[in-house]
Design a protein around this nucleic acid. Structure first.
Lengths: 162, 162
DNA sequence: CCCCCAATGATTATGATAATCAATTCCTTG
DNA sequence: CAAGGAATTGATTATCATAATCATTGGGGG
């Protein structure tokens, strides 16, 4: 699914710069951080820290493990990235400029598919109301087998019937 | 919220014994495993491996770390426990004999509140249908601040207004 | 232009969970 | 009932992702 992007007034880079330099303890916006933001927002996908590091190195961009982990946390705090709990390690995806959505995760090939459904927001509203809960965000992952893996797993006999 | 339990024909202990001893490679149902099942199903809550180990030790039940982790995995495979992704470590809750539900998690005190909403199942059904996806289960956690923490966080001025 | 403070990065630490493997336990068979 | 053998246990070690450390680097404000 290709979700429509959300109109934003600033580039991710500008928004991150603003986040870093504004506030009571201004932080620097460095070249490495700029490279990371540009690289991450040059294409939309779901990634973890290790994948990001090797992809950036493959693109001849200087990035150290420590700085990558540090900057990923800052990007989440800045509202540019969202953390995705997909098991033991942390995955990330665009938050800024991208609409709210949820995920189907294939347990065979690992693929992550996005979907949208307004009734989920409504369910959150109702549950929050009923419990005096102040919602801040959510994680909704449906595990299962994707179309391609379903076909691949089918015994030949059943394929013949199609 | 106290959810109604689901009628089951076997005790958790019997179900686990059946899971272990049935199949092409039968496994033993040992005393330690029996103690774990009984302890876990003697009360309903959300727990992680470390908490379970210290609580069982406090109850004078012999349990080693290795066996605890091993048996927790078997209990999930057997359909007795469900894994809860609530951050870096794995939490568990009853699956067998307990109805489908989802969770509100307080980011201040860590409390986990259960809720039910049939529209979530429907949303999963729709998304699966639209993507040729075979759903096997899901994890839905809403993060936020619970009623008690909201009150505690309120500035005194606002409390006076209540 | 220089100084100070924040960022960097190599390294080490941490924390949860999994793997190892010798010792033990307990079914099964004779 | 005894013995054999396979499975379980548990102390220990390994692994893996991520966080902390701290000496070094570097950039921006005065």
């Amino acid at each position: 699914m290709n979700l429509q992007s959300v109109a934003v007034s600033q580039s991710p880079e500008d928004k991150f710069r603003e986040y870093l330099t504004t506030g009571n303890k201004p932080q620097r916006f460095t070249g490495q951080q700029r490279d990371m933001v540009r690289f991450i927002f040059s294409h939309h996908d779901h990634f973890d820290a290790e994948a990001l590091i090797s992809e950036m190195q493959a693109a001849n961009l200087k990035i150290s493990r420590a700085t990558a982990y540090r900057t990923l946390n800052k990007l989440v705090d800045a509202g540019l990235l969202r953390r995705l709990e997909l098991g033991p390690r942390t995955f990330y995806e665009h938050d800024y400029g991208y609409p709210q959505h949820d995920h189907l995760q294939c347990t065979k090939c690992g693929k992550v598919i996005e979907f949208q459904n307004p009734s989920i927001e409504e369910a959150i509203r109702q549950a929050s109301l009923a419990n005096g809960f102040q919602s801040e965000g959510h994680s909704f992952v449906v595990r299962g087998v994707c179309k391609e893996c379903n076909i691949a797993l089918m015994p030949k006999r059943q394929l013949d019937l199609i």
